[in-house]
Simulated scan of single mutants.
Amino acid sequence: MTVSAADLAGELKLLRRGRGIAAPQLAERAGPALRAVCGMAEGEGNAAIRKTLGECLSGWARSLPEDLCTAVLAALGLHPEAAHPFYQDRVRWLAKHLQRDDRTARRRIDDGIHQLAEVAVASTSESDKTEAAQPSRRWHTEELRVAVALDQPVPEVLESRRIVADADDIAELDLALTLTDSVYRGEAIGSEDLRVDVFHGGRLTGRVMESTDRVGLALRLPSPLKRLSKHEIALRFRAEFRHPHFVCVPRHPVDLFDLHVRFALPIPVEVVLLERVFQDDASDEAARGFSLTPDASGEVHVQFRHLTPGFAYGVRWRPSEN
């Protein structure tokens, strides 16, 4: 089904009425454009539709300017501080939050919905092109959980990954890690620069420089996987961070990327979310995202869903000058 941004915006305006995404008749209110861009199957119940819509719409909204993102999430009933049963009450909450009148809040909502629809349609179209360009995809990551500890003598990254075979006889995984810094350009990244340990799930059988800053890793599995079977691996990486960011740039599709980053003292003066940006833009301060506030332990926790191969997802920080 071909979806236009205008059709999708119209359905989103209907969805924002009443309880929004919490509406008890959600299966009736989720129109064909919404179902198409979110990839919903026929016959799904309210709970499944609510979960899918929440994940998709929240993810797309994060790419909007902060005020429009807040406006859209509040209007649809997705903002935790605006979970009011009536749309008018959510408009009033937004007006107070923005320190504007109700009329301005409604304009922000309309602007946000139109931009959200454009982002959703563009994202869906690009994902379709990516899938069409990768007919030989043999496996994908169902769940990737990463913990980054920057308060260690040498920063450590713990990675736990569940992969799903999309073909038979998957015996080896092609993994990669990029260290972006001019220090490494033109020369190999040695084993002392990047240490890789396998905790479980396979054995490293190859390590090759794919570019001046990208290391390719071959992980041989204990036994070949059959189509639709799942397998879990756990790795540890140790390396100095040459740029103040950590991102995942998937080679294969990733359904869920869960990231914890623990900062060393002093806490960075700024931490921002990076979602679906070009890899080269990850270190560019002009590429902006949501501001994140580390908790009392100096940590931030973010999640990303349905990652597009070739784009970067993660966080960037600006170190304290002290």
Rank of each mutant, 00 (worst) to 15 (best):
L98P: 02
L98D: 02
Q99I: 05
R100S: 03
D101M: 03
D101E: 09
D101Q: 04
D101T: 09
R103I: 08
T104W: 00
A105N: 01
A105H: 00
A105Q: 01
A105F: 02
R106E: 14
R106Y: 13
R106N: 10
R106V: 14
R107I: 06
R107E: 11
R107F: 13
R108Q: 10
R108A: 13
R108C: 11
I109G: 00
D110G: 03
D110V: 05
D111Q: 13
G112M: 04
G112F: 04
G112H: 05
G112E: 00
H114I: 09
Q115V: 03
Q115H: 10
Q115C: 08
Q115R: 10
L116F: 14
L116T: 01
E118T: 02
E118S: 06
E118A: 08
E118K: 04
V119F: 12
V119M: 08
V121I: 03
V121D: 02
V121F: 13
V121H: 07
A122H: 13
A122N: 14
A122P: 05
A122K: 12
S123K: 06
S123R: 10
S123C: 11
S123N: 09
T124Y: 13
S125K: 13
S125W: 14
S125L: 11
E126M: 14
S127M: 14
S127A: 15
D128R: 13
D128K: 08
K129M: 09
T130I: 13
T130E: 12
